[in-house]
Amino acid sequence: MRIVAVCGLGYGTSVILKNNIEKALRSLHFEGATVEAVGVAEARSLGTLANMVVTTEELAPLLEGLTAKIISIRHVIDIDEITKALAKVLL
């Protein structure tokens, strides 16, 4: 399972998102996933390789058309929101 956390630039918001996805996966006891933080442009090229793209609600429309499952999050700081969204898809 390859998960990419996407923000505009791939180094600020997406790093927070990546950390929180990793925390969420641990709390769900979901193993065997890698999480990368990338920017929108990179996500477009990676999108075919990744299994899942997690991003913010503003950026999700920019990623339409990717084969990966897209999950959009309102607040990247909100681990509960991220955990619930991942649980819905993974469990």
Binding site: G8, T13, I16, T56, E58
Partner: peptide, 9 residues
């Protein structure tokens, strides 16, 4: 360019 996605909470 990308909207208010930097609003993290």
């Amino acid at each position: 360019e990308l909207g208010p996605y930097i609003v993290i909470a």
